[in-house]
């Protein structure tokens, strides 16, 4: 059946069963593969997207729960050809190894910085606590989020 989804500011008509998890439609129908499958159980955070600005896990979120609501994926954090300060900071700090958890963490961190421009270390840890990183790059991720926060506040970009 056809459903309408608002993804990254555009309306898409998709043909899938209403109980289909949003993740599969994002990846396989809309080609937005930046949102990753990690567990399908809502336990790891790799599939995190913004739903009306709030981070949610898309692997067990049925389509009929999101129709008509604004979905934002990692691909839309910045305009095309540009990097969000978070993305730039993750590259500058090499805040990834395999990078598979990165999309979900970027999305969650963007929501954090939108409501908390000057987060403490503890606030970042809490905002990201549902996100697993198996490579162990947490320390760099914390540093990158602080760095992006500084840039967003208009301070000079420096490590």
């Amino acid at each position: 059946m056809a459903l309408e989804l608002m993804v990254n500011g555009k309306l898409h008509a998709v043909s899938a069963e209403p109980e289909t998890p949003l993740l599969y439609v994002l990846r396989n129908d809309l080609g937005l593969v930046g949102t990753r499958f990690g567990c399908g159980l809502g336990q790891c955070g790799a599939c995190t997207v913004l739903l009306d600005g709030v981070p949610v896990q898309s692997c067990n979120l049925p389509l009929d729960a999101v129709a008509g609501r604004a979905i934002t994926t990692v691909e839309a954090l910045a305009p095309a050809q540009a990097l969000h300060p978070l993305q730039a900071a993750f590259v500058a700090e090499q805040a990834a190894q395999c990078g598979y958890c990165t999309s979900g963490i970027l999305v969650a961190a963007s929501a954090l910085l939108a409501r908390t421009p000057e987060p403490t270390d503890l606030q970042i840890r809490q905002a990201l606590d549902a996100h697993l990183c198996r490579c162990g790059t947490h320390v760099r991720i914390l540093r990158a989020v602080h760095r992006a926060a500084r840039v967003l506040r208009g301070e000079q970009d420096a490590a």
């Binding site: 593969v33 949102t35 691909e75 990097l83 590259v91 500058a92 990834a96 999309s103």
Partner: peptide, 12 residues
């Protein structure tokens, strides 16, 4: 800088 990170942070 790592040659692969740009693609990974932009969700490609």
């Amino acid at each position: 800088a790592r040659i692969d990170l740009q693609a990974k942070v932009t969700g490609q």
